[in-house]
Design a protein around this nucleic acid. Structure first.
Lengths: 234, 234
DNA sequence: CACGCTCAAATTTGATCATATTCTGACGTT
DNA sequence: AACGTCAGAATATGATCAAATTTGAGCGTG
């Protein structure tokens, strides 16, 4: 009877038992990735302790991790906020994505099995359903999970973690894209990619990922240059 | 008289005033980068609070940052230690370095000025002096600072930060390389690189960096496969 | 007379610490 | 060999200290 206590103890979200700083990190991370927090929005420690009902130390540790991963930035004074992407940031992110993700797709294509294909397929189905339903949150979630699953399959944890950090940077801006244009006009190359992976065709998988990245970054660029037309007056 | 208090207040390491968690982070980071801590070595919170004379909270925050950056790993239980590089880790690091650092060198080559050249040159001089003197710590320090300075010149902070994290991963192993073979037989392509940068020759700079990375990673591979001949029994 | 500037008090927020609680691993007992 | 107990280490809390922003009163200027 002792062993049942863990499961029923706290939030009981299915996970066995998680330290508070981990829960705070993941919760805040998801808020950033999936657009609950807007670029430029300030984040305070004491605000989070109240909002999340957590203590001060776990919140601090989670913030340090988020800042180290680029999901948040520390201003010169010691305030913290969600970063705003500049054109040069986008240029860097674009370069890194195109340098790293195609190789992950290649590696994944050599390790495919039916189980993997099914997981990717279900994420893609959920993604398309979200697009059809105009559900921005689920679109962002499934789009991220599709790529995250692919990079897990590639079995290159360091590269995958690096790419994951890039997603933390442009996540908030993806939400801006959707907020402006809705979920329509959000084409992706996932179908091409799935075909290539099923065939074990590394070249085709690489090509599909490159095109997917190209599309995504172009959308972000368009949405942001549209949203900040007065940069010269700053 | 009030304004003098800051400088004389705490550790007074020359910096104006720094939060303790920042000092702890940088100190531990340098220990990892420059070989004070060996791969596999366990790191405890309470050990650090004593060793560094710091409180528990700053140490915890520094550890979270180091772990997020891959400089330390958290075992399944809540122990922390310096990671041991496996062959597949080296493969990933090799891939990422070759994907990212050449472009940084190219960007830097287009932004060179005499001031920058002087900084890089002085690091290279100090590096060569350290090699000649068999001073492993200074070799590692100046080698790192040479590359770090180059990547700062490239003016691509996100890419530079990403590469910096990679150095945190293989830093401890560089020390192993030196411990086995001394500072002799540590050739580098810095002279070629400096010439290329002085000429603004992006192609030559890229080539030099690629060769430098190739040499460095080959050395690491050799030292580690030498040190862990029983990998098939893991 | 009104507007804007400066400086200092007040408030908010971040940083640190001491302490209590929980968990892990090890040792000893049965 | 399996179980229970215990020491040590990590996690989490709230209080306290320090820094920064904001507020507002007083002063000078247009």
């Amino acid at each position: 009877m002792q062993m049942l206590k863990n499961a029923a103890q706290e939030g009981m979200l299915g996970a066995v038992k998680q330290p508070a700083h981990q829960s705070v990190y993941e919760g805040l991370r998801d808020q950033i990735l999936f657009g609950e927090l807007a670029p430029g929005q300030p984040v305070t420690i004491q605000g989070l302790t109240q909002q999340l009902g957590a203590g001060m130390t776990p919140v601090r540790e989670a913030l340090r991790r988020l800042i180290a991963n680029g999901a948040l930035v520390m201003l010169g004074n010691r305030r913290v906020c969600v970063p705003v992407l500049t054109e040069s940031c986008i240029k860097e992110l674009d370069f890194m994505r195109k340098s790293l993700e195609p190789q992950l797709a290649r590696w994944a294509s050599t390790k495919m099995n039916p189980q993997h294909l099914m997981i990717l397929g279900s994420h893609d189905d959920a993604l398309n359903a979200a697009i059809a339903g105009g559900d921005i949150h689920n679109y962002l979630l499934e789009n991220y999970q599709f790529h995250a699953a692919l990079y897990t399959i590639a079995d290159a944890p360091i590269v995958a973690a690096t790419v994951d950090r890039l997603w933390l940077r442009f996540g908030p801006s993806l939400r801006v894209v959707c907020g402006r244009y809705g979920t329509m006009n959000l084409p992706d190359k996932h179908a091409d990619l799935l075909r290539a992976l099923a065939d074990g065709n590394a070249d085709a998988a690489e090509r599909a990922i490159k095109e997917d990245i190209e599309q995504g970054m172009t959308q972000i660029r368009a949405a942001l240059s549209d949203a900040q037309p007065h940069g010269r007056f700053d």
